[in-house]
Computed example of a mutant assay.
Amino acid sequence: MDQESKMETVTTLKAAYIPPRSQGVRLRGIRGELLEKHIAQMISEKVHAERNPPTPKTDFCSTTQRDFCVEGFVPLTPDKTQVHDYKTDQAVTFWSENCQLIQGVTAIQTLKAPFRKSALFSTPISERLDELELPSDN
């Protein structure tokens, strides 16, 4: 036995097998092949359309354009009933509207500013000069 010999690269099956050769005659008609290709293309397009739906067209219309720039819209500015100053006017809140119902609040002197600083707790009754009547003790 020769230890340095190389292995055969061709098996007996490969050496004996001969691939079949076409007979040179068309086995299928041209029309059948074209019909098969057309049906395969239609099915692939249908599957592609189902899996990849077209993106909807983006509407770049803002709320102002859609609601206020409509034909026939007339903007109406209401007339002012009184002059308001945001720096000095008291804010209207839930608590300022319901200040009479709050428990534990000192006597409200003016309804326009119910939560202003009050010194009634620390001022002795004898020094209350601005009040005409003394508060009742009931």
Rank of each mutant, 00 (worst) to 15 (best):
K46S: 11
T55G: 08
E127W: 03
T106K: 13
L101T: 12
S126F: 10
A16G: 12
K57H: 05
A15H: 08
G72M: 05
E131V: 10
A113T: 14
T93M: 01
K112R: 15
H38M: 07
D89L: 07
Q41V: 09
R66D: 04
T63S: 11
A113W: 00
S22M: 04
V74E: 08
R51A: 07
T9G: 07
K80G: 09
P20W: 00
F60Y: 07
R28M: 02
S96P: 11
N98S: 08
V74A: 12
H48C: 14
E4I: 10
D130R: 10
F73K: 14
I30E: 00
H84Q: 08
H38P: 01
D67H: 09
T12Y: 00
T64N: 04
N52I: 03
P56D: 08
S136V: 05
Y86D: 14
T64G: 07
K37P: 00
P20G: 04
I125M: 12
G24A: 08
R31P: 01
S44K: 06
T11L: 15
L13M: 10
G104S: 09
P20T: 05
Q103H: 07
M1I: 12
D137N: 12
L27Q: 00
K87N: 11
E45G: 15
N98M: 07
E33C: 01
E133Y: 05
T110E: 03
D79H: 06
E50S: 13
A16Y: 02
W95F: 11
V105A: 08
P135Q: 02
H38V: 11
Q109L: 13
I18S: 03
I39T: 06
E71Q: 10
P20A: 08
D59I: 15
E36T: 02
R51E: 13
G104P: 02
L27H: 00
P56Q: 14
E127T: 09
Q90K: 03
P54W: 01
Q103P: 07
L111R: 12
F60K: 06
F121V: 15
T106G: 14
S96W: 02
R21I: 05
Q23N: 13
A16V: 13
T9Y: 03
I43Y: 04
A119S: 13
S122H: 02
L101C: 10
L120T: 12
Y17K: 12
R28C: 02
Y17I: 10
